[in-house]
Amino acid sequence: MAKPLTPLALTVLRMLCDGPMHPYEMQQRIRQYAYDHAVKVTHGALYNSVDRLAARGLIETVETSRDGRRPERTVYTVTDAGRGAAQMRLAEILSELNEEFPLFGTGLAFVNLLPEDEVLQCLFTRLSKLEFLLAGHQSAYDSLLKRGIPRHKLLDMELAVEHNRVELEYVRGLIDDLQHGRLNWADESPTACRPQNELRHEENS
């Protein structure tokens, strides 16, 4: 049984559904439509993905050409099998829930390994980064809309903006709870990572 299409492979197939193109043009379009906000893309990974799709018969070569001293360029098109595989994978992604384990969730699970004041400083740092990230995503989204990119091609960016906004408000709430004593763990029993002498130091500070 073939492995499910990776997000990058799905990106390649989606672009080729618009018409034949070579990998360099794909890179340009990925930046143009901000697909790199939704899919991790590197130069090498893109070419490897194209090679794998061709080997599976999901895309095929249309022509190979060379312009002067530039490297040889191969133009690809999507096959019927590739179009069907892309549609099937997209339906799975949209309808199925995939359990994810974000690193921030891991940090929150083990938050009491650090003193409350240190956690507070970490959260202030995260808050600043989230504010910067949200502003950047919102600016990029607004810019693409002004350029005439249809909203349905920017839904992934809408989701990123909303995720940033929700996490930002959550972190603000945690900071407020820590500052006003509604969240604390200073009176917990000592652990191997937070020995008794560290806890005493907090109580005396």
Score class of each variant (00 low, 15 high):
L90V: 09
L113V: 13
V78A: 07
P71Q: 03
T64S: 11
P115M: 09
A86D: 02
G68N: 01
R66T: 11
D117S: 12
R83I: 02
E92D: 13
F104T: 05
L113Q: 15
F110P: 02
T64P: 01
Q87V: 11
A55K: 15
G68K: 07
E72W: 07
T79K: 00
I59L: 01
I59N: 00
Y76T: 00
P71M: 04
L103W: 12
P115L: 08
G57I: 02
T64K: 07
E116T: 14
P115Y: 05
Y76A: 04
A86T: 04
N112W: 13
L114Q: 04
N98D: 13
E63R: 15
T77S: 12
E99N: 06
P71H: 01
E100D: 14
E92T: 07
T77C: 08
V78I: 14
V78M: 05
E116S: 12
D67V: 14
L103M: 14
M88S: 14
R89Y: 00
E63W: 06
G105E: 14
L97W: 11
S65F: 10
N98K: 14
L97V: 11
T79R: 06
R56S: 11
E60K: 15
R66H: 03
A86K: 00
S95M: 08
R70G: 08
T74A: 06
T64D: 02
L94G: 06
T77N: 06
